[in-house]
């Protein structure tokens, strides 16, 4: 039996690549830039507001800012607005933490029809799960390396 690779017809693939429509590079990059910049600026606005009103600092400040941004991302996803922003901005709305919220809420909403336990709760992390896995794994690894480093040096 032949595998997928053995079926590959390079000539055909080259030809398809040649005539396939191209992504409009400049336009998408510009969209990503201004939307991404704007989302970060909104975050900065909250940062400054929390700093001056509640006198928060350091990690606590960042944590509350990310909480607010996640709230906004989740809320806009619920309203059905975030996918519109995503279509326009691409990377500009995927990379900010609001995009992380979007990737959690969208499958949770989508799979609600399969129940609140195995639908919403279980499918919540189909897109965002790897972020948590790799995030925590890398932090533990870094922590251990630094722990050993601090003891030796």
């Amino acid at each position: 039996m032949k595998t997928s690779k053995e079926f590959t017809n390079e000539n055909y693939l080259d030809y398809v690549k040649h005539i396939a429509p191209k992504t409009k590079q400049k336009r998408t990059i510009f969209h990503a830039f201004w939307v991404g910049g704007l989302i970060c600026s909104i975050g900065q606005g909250f940062r400054m507001a929390l700093e001056s009103v509640f006198n928060l600092k350091g990690d606590e400040l960042s944590a509350y800012v990310s909480m607010i941004m996640i709230f906004l991302g989740a809320f806009l996803t619920g309203l059905g607005v975030y996918d519109r922003i995503g279509k326009y901005a691409g990377g500009g709305s995927i990379v900010p933490i609001t995009g992380f919220a979007n990737s959690v809420v969208s499958p949770a909403m989508e799979f609600k029809t399969e129940g609140y336990v195995y639908g919403t709760a279980a499918k919540m992390f189909v897109v965002a799960g790897p972020i948590i896995v790799f995030g925590i794994a890398s932090s533990v690894l870094i922590g251990l390396i630094y722990f050993v480093g601090y003891r030796i040096f």
């Binding site: 990503a32 830039f33 910049g37 975050g43 901005a89 500009g92």
Partner: peptide
């Protein structure tokens, strides 16, 4: 904030 945040997103867009 705008420029750095935007630039990080542009890197993602270029990858996409």
């Amino acid at each position: 904030v705008f420029v750095v945040g935007g630039a990080i997103c542009v890197i993602a867009q270029i990858l996409i």
